[in-house]
Nucleic acid binder design. Sequence first.
RNA 1: GGGCGAUUAGCUCAGUUGGUUUAGAGCACCUGCCUUACAAGCAGGGGGUCGUUGGUUCGAAUCCAUCAUCGCCCACCA
Length: 914
Amino acid sequence: MSESSTAQSTRYNPTELENKWYQHWMDQQYFASKPDEREAYSIVIPPPNVTGVLHMGHMLNNTIQDILIRKARQEGKNACWVPGTDHASIATEAKVVKRLREQGIKKSDIGRDEFLKHAWAWKEEFGGKILDQLKQLGASCDWDRTSFTMDPGLSKAVMKVFVDLHKKGKIYRGKRMTNWDPEAKTVLSNEEVIYKEENSRLFHVRYRIEGTEDEWITIATTRPETIMGDTAIAINPKDERYTHLQGRKAIVPLIGRVIPIISDGYVEMEFGTGALKVTPAHDMNDHEIGERHQLEIVDVFNDDGTMSEAAQLYIGQDRFAVRKLVAKDLEKAGHIVKIEDYRNTVGRSERTDAVVEPRLTLQWFLDMKDFAKTALDAVSSKEVQFFPEHFWNMYHNWLNEDNIRDWCISRQLWWGHRIPAWYYGEDTFVAETAEEALEMARQKSGIADLPLSELKQDEDVVDTWFSSWLWPISVFNGFESPEELRYYYPTNVLVTAWDIIFFWVARMVMAGYEWSGELLGPETAAKKGIMPFKAVYFTGMVRDEKRRKMSKSLGNSPDAIQLMDRYGADGVRFGMLSSAAAGNDIVFDAPIDPKTKKVLNESKLCEQGQNFCNKMWNALRLIKGLPRKEQAIDKETALINALAIQWFEHKLEQTAIKIQEQFETFRLSEALMNLYTFIWGDFCSWYLEMIKPPYGEAIDEATYQRTLELFEKLMSLLHPFMPFVTEEIWHQLQDRQAGDDCIISPYPRGGSFDAALITKVDTAMEVVAKIRDARNKNGIKQKEPLTLFIQKTSSTSELFELAGLKEMIVKMAYLSELTFTEEEIDNSVSFLAGTGKYFLLINKQIDVAAEIARLEEDLGRQQMFVKKAEKKLGNPRFVDGAPPAVVEKERKKLSDGQARIKAIEEELEKLRNK
RNA sequence: GGGCGAUUAGCUCAGUUGGUUUAGAGCACCUGCCUUACAAGCAGGGGGUCGUUGGUUCGAAUCCAUCAUCGCCCACCA
């Protein structure tokens, strides 16, 4: 395919290749899944907003899902990742309204049907964008299954579920104090309101006592514009300052309404003046007080936050303008006692940022009591497992019966699933279709030919999450024909950010239990349903350097597409993942080093990923560029190559096992780091250097072939993390038959390995490193041939019995000679590796004083080490109490340490005697 | 107010039920190298008494308590 490019560029160039391979995978239909006899591995995507763009949170999230699904695919499972988008009622409607407004069109002028046409047009125009961006990231979703929460099938499921719950008596309609967004003109759920401290002012306003000329009661309020809605003043019954006013009446300034002075334990005596104005229409707590005392409710606002007729004054003006006006007018009339600066918490709409107005409205609710219990049980019984586990605490805290509140499921919007309730006269008919509702109405009313036009459907739509909570069932068309559901459900894992644990995760668990039982058939029904996923992996939130959540509104998110264009999808995937331990928030931006003032910008991590691609690319160039011949060149080379291959094979098995363990516990970033150091360090820096022939010479065919196979295995292991570069290298390594692709290559599981062999080579590597260090410290060129003596002991003898080890050290450390010695070597640099002692002969006088200092420092370290071990072993409770293996290790540590001390002391003595 | 989490190298973070980790990685820093795969590289190196003070234990970065600082979630005093 790209054979010609192999040897050319020293740089890996992702852009072209990524497109090419994605297209290839699509052509081969690797992402498509149909139920078959294989084990299923399914994931449903957390559907992003249909009109959204890819941000860093999505990148992280979907990279993780892709890693999991790709690995499952390589393991031969029937991997199915269902993509899709969410209609996101409020967010999308807000965008459409804005666009229409820019065109001079008001939503209310064009009406529901016309508005929805615009909304659908908008969805068609921008809806697929985020999915295309996911493709650029390499997401291996089964695109044929792409779902949208307002697809006919998914919409039908929403209707079905609504009717079902209504029949079960869990859905009810009632007047409630709700959070009203005056900008979007809709009710918000508690979760959609964001409270923040803001600067405001606390007005102390005095109300005259009825029937007096100069007796007053002073209240404190931050919202003087609501005084027209006051219907009482409340005081604490224990407050002696006001005992004399109990049962009397006060007069509301400006409008002159006479209101009772009541006593209620809710009032805090210490706060403000200890007297509270009660506005039942505009405050949650005041409303409760109002109910206790049967107070009148005066709603002084319109639905857009302007003053209503009931306010009597300032009608039609905005609440915040009125706040200032009222303050001025009260001042003029002598009612202001004082005004204090004050900080209080203000609730704002998550979507529109408008200050939320508590308001009494008629809404649909879902009774959460039973649902909450089910959702709690599912997690406490470990049927659904959380990673990391501590999110259980947060989940529990929200769902326990003291905190759980009924779910307000209606929204005053048009974009979404319209509530399937029809009104006729005093009656309400909840049905999946208008026809059914009409039939119900005809029966109830006895009017056989009642026309549909007489019925009025509820104007509202359901909360977006009311469709999302069905997602793991509805994307498999589970409510209509559950065949696929039986195969793919429960999904294996849900990967999501923890901030929607309540909105979405908990509710999906609830829905799973509520409906999967009957849908999956008798076996499951007996268990009253099962969870929608076996595990939930919570990713951290991606934050900027100020630890703020990355969001479009703040504009603090790097452009994901730009990043991919710059570093390649593989580079970005690497960057995202390498600092993303499960559940911990990750800071992904531009921290500044206080010392150097240099910007360690966000690209650092991605750059590292890009460099990694480059490294592997060059390893490929090296191998493919080597001249080859049939037979081994000489005996030494043959020994080295054999050892290198043997060592690396064992190391590969060991690594594969570790990776497997890390996958099982979702330690993906650690797995990636392991592969990174394994490939860069062990493979490139050691293995390839060991087998690399001197310049101009050839490598033997057997070693060459074996190296290709090892490289191939590495690509299989790394593929889930960095799919593009691994696929490209896979194809450059060998000529491939059609269908022989890295994406479906078996995932190396790892098997038994020889730990002793690995340790021996590790020691040899330590020897090499020490020699290099000695060269550095003594200013000797890296390639100047030197002689190394090894002190002959039982341990060094055993070490060097390993065939090829000696030759390998000679090659890697550029030695001219390596021999055993029985005695100390004069004028040499000595060092320890493992428990062995080595003397490097350098062709210049050594600095005796410096050498002594170095050895003394080392001696001190070793003595500390030995002392610790001695203390432990001297303690009978340790020897008896600790596991034998631990004690044995401690003994080994001690004897090794003692051997080292002995060696150092000998050396020191020799030097001192000079 | 209720709950959760964090505090480990200059920076960003790992450290998996307490013992093979004399505490690791990347970046940054220092030294030497344009060595014929890669200078976006190679070979080395320095740097941390794991926030405080106690406790449990034969043994603590790891468990418990306390304090300090920071972050987040939920609820909220007008």
